[in-house]
Amino acid sequence: MNIIEVVNLSKSFKAKKGTITAVKDVSFNVRMGELFGFLGPNGAGKTTTINILCTLLTPTSGKALLNSFDVVTNPNEVRQSIGLVFQEPSLDEKLTARENLEFHAMLYNVPKAVREERIKYMLAMVGLYDRKDDLVNTFSGGMKRRLEIARGFLHHPRVLFLDEPTLGLDPQTRNHIWEYIHQLRKKEEITIFLTTHYMAEAENCDRVAIIDYGEIIAIDSPSDLKKEIGGDVITVIAEDRDKAKKTIEEEYNFSVIENDEGLHFEVENGETFLPKFIKKADFKILSISLRRPTLEDVFLKLTGRRIREESAEANTALKIHARRLMR
């Protein structure tokens, strides 16, 4: 069953010069219970799509159903069905952690009888119970993010949107946050809609939509997406490089790419190929490695460009930093 159905969705913004079409005629479904990922570079239209699905923006054309409610005609039902962790901070820093959650619980009509318990439970889940009565402006970036995630889960939404939930956080905090998300996911029946430009996060998804310039250019499970690449990437370093290259090319008919790191070639089924290859080799192998293709390879193949996570990350981290300084 589909929890989200999007049909021919478009969104244009009026800009100084003409219009910007941020989302172009996009159609896709998200299945109930899945971890669904939107992978794409800066400005691809990820946040705009989420903003339409969460009723913050009205689409220019097309239709979107969430939990079988239309986002345009039934916004309140849609809002009750979703939780959100926005790309940019959205806490009231002058309130305590508990008060932020209480505010949310009241707005979402969490019954008074269970409100306190639920708030305590969520705070404990993200490891902030001890800090519940501290003002949020005393929290670190990672703690704030965890609090936002707790808030997103608080009212038992059917769908949780996570817009770049770990952007600008260090790898350790990032892993931590994912641990919390996976734990919560086990306990609550929930569909997660994630946007990211970290490959590792996208790899974790059940299905990924690759989005570029407002269009979905591929949508499938990460493993199926990578199958399009044509197998595994094998890297060999041999004592006699020329002999090795000649053997691989002539006996196996693979096209070999040679660079500083060694000889690279693609085979369809790396695991079964490697033992046979090593056994038959009549040259000395110094090292051999097998690498699965990544989603970055897929994006590269489809668009001819890289997603460039570093620059994107630096950019947004800067924006968030500037925002925090302004307070």
Binding site: C54, T55, L56, N76, E77, R79, Q80, I82, L84, F86, E88, P89, S90, L91, D92, E93, H104, L107, Y108, N109, R151, R323, M326, R327
Partner: peptide
């Protein structure tokens, strides 16, 4: 101010009119 610090979004996506 709430809009600038992002908090207004939290209010605007809540299931109230």
């Amino acid at each position: 101010w709430d809009r600038e610090i992002g908090f207004l979004k939290e209010v605007m996506v809540a299931p109230i009119s």
